Deep mutational scan, measured.
Amino acid sequence: MASQGTKRSYEQMETDGERQNATEIRASVGKMIDGIGRFYIQMCTELKLSDYEGRLIQNSLTIERMVLSAFDERRNKYLEEHPSAGKDPKKTGGPIYKRVDRKWMRELVLYDKEEIRRIWRQANNGDDATAGLTHMMIWHSNLNDTTYQRTRALVRTGMDPRMCSLMQGSTLPRRSGAAGAAVKGVGTMVMELIRMIKRGINDRNFWRGENGRKTRSAYERMCNILKGKFQTAAQRAMMDQVRESRNPGNAEIEDLIFLARSALILRGSVAHKSCLPACVYGPAVASGYDFEKEGYSLVGIDPFKLLQNSQVYSLIRPNENPAHKSQLVWMACNSAAFEDLRVLSFIRGTKVSPRGKLSTRGVQIASNENMDAMESSTLELRSRYWAIRTRSGGNTNQQRASAGQISVQPAFSVQRNLPFDKPTIMAAFTGNTEGRTSDMRAEIIRMMEGAKPEEMSFQGRGVFELSDERAANPIVPSFDMSNEGSYFFGDNAEEYDN
């Protein structure tokens, strides 16, 4: 993207840094990872977990959730003011799984939030270390993106479920800051804005008074975040219109849905970061690795190297396929839920299948599930090659597409044709070009129609051997075009429920 120079890199967003050079960025990201790792080690000690239990991804998720809940100030305040039966607002906890007599047992633990905050700050040299908290939120978000298709949420806001490739980060909490905003897809931002506008339509006082002023500035800020994701002048001009509207209503909703559809071809720039579970960072720190000293990046080879040398386990339900569970977590670790499966298959070195073909449910185990038949197995999170994460949407291309997802959002900077089903997408653009945004709409449609099938995206960008740390010898991959490109292809993934 041309304006790259004016933006802070995501590592800076990730670490609240002012302008830093590459070495400083690597050190501050490393410091953040160190903090998460030290916190995780301490929690495993508190909970008396064995090494194996500490490497269980379900335990990692519970521990991450506990610290996120302990620092969720708004919710904590709300819980104190609106006490609900049987919930102690000062405590947080969740299921911890232990191996007892050759069987997995679930144990519900409860801790004072104050105590968890103390352990977290102690692991982070006394700081609140917001960057580390956001990092864990993005890992949870990436896992949700890989596990669930947001059909219901899309339909509720009037969008087409086939636009799911635009929904990265749709389950990120509001408090995820600049680093969170960077990884949100165009569809996620559109959905947040539509929800806001709908509230304004239904509630006369939404934009009024002292609160209304705050609401208005939040609305304009979200519009600017979305505008910054678009790469064409016409899309940005249309966002200006939406932002400046005196009284946002149905016309703005129409414009936003139009823009979301246009992003299936004229893709937005959305950041991709490899955020790993805390149970990967903990053992690495415990083994003596100093992330701050060595430096770390979320968008280069580092996460690949770390996963190459990590042992992570997962509980497996009786009829689940461990290899499929591994694929789910591998995609989440690489922030690749909406990437082209052919690119992923090449990088991973084994075939990556669409969601609907995987015999696996989510990673988390519900409290009512029976533990008797639970097994555990090693997650295979290694890769054959590594590639640089991208934040450009890439230019655009036609490809055989599917009944489910009709476009992709690249996660890796790797040369390819970008699949999208042009006739299906263009069919949504018939007729409606009147109104105050008509010239911009016409211009956007013209650009979409001009998108050429034979153009290559990320020209000359390749993948790298894991021994090639400096990215000196790019390998331009070859793809098996007979395979499906979309992950949520004609899909039956479970729906995400809060």
Rank of each mutant, 00 (worst) to 15 (best):
D101A: 00
T134M: 10
N144Y: 14
M331H: 06
Q459H: 02
Q311D: 09
G356C: 08
R121I: 02
V285W: 07
H272S: 11
T350S: 14
L172F: 01
E64S: 06
R208C: 13
N224D: 09
D240P: 12
N144P: 13
M426R: 01
G485A: 00
V476W: 12
L306N: 08
T215G: 15
V100C: 05
N144I: 03
G431S: 01
R342L: 13
T62I: 03
T23W: 08
G35T: 12
S170V: 08
M189L: 03
K273T: 07
A234E: 04
E339H: 06
N205P: 04
A131M: 08
T151C: 10
P474Q: 12
V352S: 06
T134I: 04
D468N: 13
L256F: 15
L79D: 04
E192W: 14
K325Y: 11
A70S: 01
S170H: 14
L344S: 05
V242N: 09
F464E: 01
L264Q: 00
D160N: 12
M43C: 03
A337P: 05
R236P: 05
R8Y: 11
R267A: 08
V312C: 00
E434S: 00
E380M: 10
F458Q: 10
A337S: 13
A387Y: 06
Y40P: 08
G300P: 11
L47N: 13
D439S: 15
T350G: 09
S287H: 10
E107M: 10
R19K: 00
K229E: 13
T437P: 12
S486W: 10
G485L: 03
A70T: 14
T15A: 08
Y40F: 02
K325D: 11
N124I: 12
V186K: 03
T6A: 14
G462E: 08
W207R: 13
E115N: 13
L108Q: 08
E292S: 00
A323S: 05
P283E: 04
K87Y: 15
K357F: 08
E292I: 12
S60P: 00
R117F: 05
I225M: 15
L79H: 08
Q241S: 02
Q42G: 00
I425G: 03
Y487P: 11
H272K: 09
A263D: 13
S486I: 10
R216V: 06
F420G: 00
A471E: 06
L276Q: 14
M448L: 15
T147D: 10
G132P: 03
E80A: 01
Q42S: 04
E64N: 05
L266T: 05
V414F: 10
W104Y: 02
R175H: 14
Q4Y: 00
Q241T: 07
Q327M: 12
S335T: 09
A263H: 09
A22L: 12
M136I: 02
M440C: 15
Y52V: 02
W120G: 05
Y385E: 12
Q398I: 01
N142Y: 15
E81D: 04
M448S: 12
A271C: 07
R416T: 15
R8E: 11
V109I: 08
G94M: 10
I301R: 01
E484A: 02
A181P: 15
V476F: 12
Q364C: 06
S50A: 02
G450E: 09
L418V: 00
M481D: 09
M374V: 14
F71W: 08
P283Q: 00
S28E: 00
K227W: 11
A251Y: 10
S9A: 15
N224V: 10
R65D: 06
A366N: 07
E484V: 12
S359P: 13
R8A: 11
R106T: 01
Q311L: 15
T396H: 05
G356E: 12
C275T: 07
I25Y: 09
E18Y: 00
M374C: 14
I25H: 14
R118L: 06
Y313I: 13
L307A: 06
A153P: 05
K422Q: 04
E449G: 13
K198A: 08
K452A: 00
G17D: 06
S413F: 13
K87L: 03
Y148A: 11
L154R: 07
L328D: 07
R174T: 03
L79T: 09
D160V: 04
G177K: 13
E220S: 05
G460E: 06
S176K: 08
A472E: 08
Q231G: 01
K229T: 01
V476Y: 12
A123Y: 07
R152W: 11
N76E: 04
E380V: 14
G462S: 03
Q168R: 09
L226H: 08
P318E: 01
L226K: 13
S262M: 10
D127W: 07
K273F: 09
M374N: 07
E375I: 12
S314A: 00
R150I: 10
F464H: 03
N59W: 07
G212H: 02
S376V: 15
S262K: 07
N144G: 11
G158W: 07
K351I: 03
Q235E: 05
V242K: 04
V270K: 10
L61W: 05
R174I: 14
E375F: 07
I194A: 14
N59I: 12
L79Y: 15
R8P: 02
E292G: 14
L259C: 09
A336M: 12
G169C: 06
Q409V: 00
N247V: 01
E449M: 10
T130M: 00
R236K: 15
T378R: 00
N211Y: 06
A451G: 13
K325M: 04
T396G: 04
P419W: 10
